[in-house]
């Protein structure tokens, strides 16, 4: 009696596990691209972004049961990702090293290969995080002002102001660059 019940239980458990695994893999395949791009714009470094995405999906696996609605999956993953990124900074604070012991490199995104060739890309990367993040959510994921404010835990007016400033800065940066080019051109001529 005891054994038959155990057997039934364990087969039920493995069925649940298989279902969970399938659900997880579907989620990974559907959303890893978006989540990676979001991570990339959050940290502006591909390998760091990849680490964070790996960690994000591992955490997602552990708490997959708490995701009730697949439609909320993307914002759920973004929430995990942002928390994961914040953790990275907490860790970093303890990783104090003697500056003489390490080679100091300028790892600003503008120096990353393939990035520098596009001006707009560079300007987006140079925006303050608080401006860039809502912009990415809006343009890349098509989120509304309400959705962004829910995602970032900000009030909607703050979000709209930041979006305005983000585009305003980009436009200014592009126009400045244009006028610089023009003045250089006239000097040359």
């Amino acid at each position: 009696m005891l054994f038959t019940r155990n057997k039934a239980d364990s087969s039920k458990v493995s069925t649940i596990m298989a279902t969970k695994q399938k659900r997880y893999e579907t989620l990974v395949h559907a959303l890893h691209g978006d989540i990676f791009r979001y991570a990339y714009w959050l940290v502006r470094d591909k390998s760091v972004a990849e680490d964070i995405v790996q960690e994000t999906f591992l955490r997602a696996w552990r708490s997959l049961d708490s995701l009730k609605d697949e439609k909320a999956a993307k914002s759920w993953l973004i929430t995990i990702l942002r928390r994961e990124n914040a953790r990275r900074f907490e860790r970093k604070q303890f990783d104090l090293v003697d500056i003489d012991d390490v080679s100091v490199t300028d790892d600003a995104p503008s120096h990353e290969a393939g990035l520098a060739d596009n001006e707009l890309h560079r300007h987006i990367a140079s925006l303050a995080d608080e401006y860039r993040e809502p912009l990415v959510l809006q343009v890349m994921f098509g989120m509304s002002g309400e959705e962004i404010s829910a995602q970032l835990g900000l009030n909607k007016n703050t979000v709209m102001t930041r979006l305005f400033r983000a585009r305003n800065q980009l436009k200014d940066l592009l126009e400045n660059a244009d006028s610089n080019n023009q003045s250089r051109g006239s000097k040359n001529g």
Partner: peptide, 21 residues
Amino acid sequence: IKQQLHAEVPQDLAHRIVLQQ
């Protein structure tokens, strides 16, 4: 902006994520 945001996703990232899990 949308075009620039569309960063290239590393190949096999999905498989690596599933593998790690």
